[in-house]
């Protein structure tokens, strides 16, 4: 049996937990979504989270940025600590959400111009100076590998971009408030493979600046990117270990092996 505490391989080597999750239980009404999971996320690692549908991956992300509170009739038990502080004790929930970048499965270009999409979060945080906003917009679009394609038409609507471009736009937007943690929820679902590769390159670069939680349906994507990988199944954390171990011939749980190798069920 593997303990959740593992030495990290690759670049995510500092063993400072950024997020500490202990005994987290979530229910939607009567149906459980997460049944008491515990693990830590370390500084500057990419943590891959894999598992079939309905296994609680998205719920986990929603707990972390507290957008689950917007869904009525949900119960959350256990604790999630961000830099040692229980997120439920944080009074400024909007400030908390700005510390976490979130990229959703389907790209949601807000019905605003490309510029305004990226400047949205800085503006809500109170930044007004045009020069400062310009700088943020350019930096984020550069980081999301979208700048070269859109720099001449920042005023056109974000919703008019292609799917892959919109997804990079949402990544740029998620970076615009300089989050400590970037959560990606199956970002490649509406993106072609070439663009997916480009975004993956982007993520590898971003890793030096922030911690990344990568929820993905593509197990190979976790294999390519993640330092560690967690396998979720029906609301349980089956196994969390270095990606090398999870994808090896002998992970500690047979279900993990089956899922990763496509012989599941």
């Amino acid at each position: 049996m593997t303990t959740p505490m593992q030495t990290n391989s690759d670049n995510g080597s500092q063993n400072t937990p950024v997020i500490e999750i202990s005994d987290l239980k979530v229910r939607y009404g009567d149906s459980p979504a997460l049944n008491g999971i515990s693990f830590d996320v370390y500084q500057n690692e990419i943590l891959g989270i894999i598992g079939p549908a309905q296994s609680g991956k998205t719920t986990l992300l929603k707990v972390i940025n507290r957008t689950l509170e917007l869904t009525p009739d949900t119960t959350v038990e256990g604790s999630v600590k961000l830099d040692g502080v229980d997120i439920r004790t944080i009074g400024d929930v909007y400030g908390l959400r700005r510390r976490i970048g979130m990229v959703l499965p389907l790209p949601v270009g807000l019905p605003l111009s490309i510029y305004d999409n990226v400047a949205f979060a800085p503006r809500t945080a109170g930044i007004r100076a045009k020069s400062e906003l310009d700088e943020i917009v350019e930096r984020c679009l550069q980081q999301a590998a979208l700048w070269d394609e859109v720099k001449d038409r920042l005023d056109s609507l974000g919703t008019k971009l292609s799917g892959g471009q919109q997804q990079r736009l949402t990544i740029a937007r998620a970076l615009s408030h300089q989050p400590e943690i970037l959560c990606l929820d199956e970002f490649s679902i509406a993106v072609d493979p070439v663009t997916t590769m480009r975004i993956e390159e982007v993520l590898k670069t971003l890793q030096t600046e922030m911690t990344i939680l990568l929820v993905t349906n593509l197990v190979q994507q976790a294999k390519r990117l993640a330092n560690r990988t967690a396998f979720f199944l029906n609301g349980d954390l089956i196994e969390i270990d270095t990606t090398d171990v999870i994808f090896s011939e002998n992970p500690s749980n047979q279900a993990t092996y089956d899922y990763v190798n496509g012989t599941f069920g």
Partner: peptide, 15 residues
């Protein structure tokens, strides 16, 4: 207006 707009904006820390 699609709920996804609301969710996306809320996730960006908007009130």
């Amino acid at each position: 207006v699609p709920d996804s707009y609301r969710e996306a904006a809320e996730a960006l820390g908007a009130t």
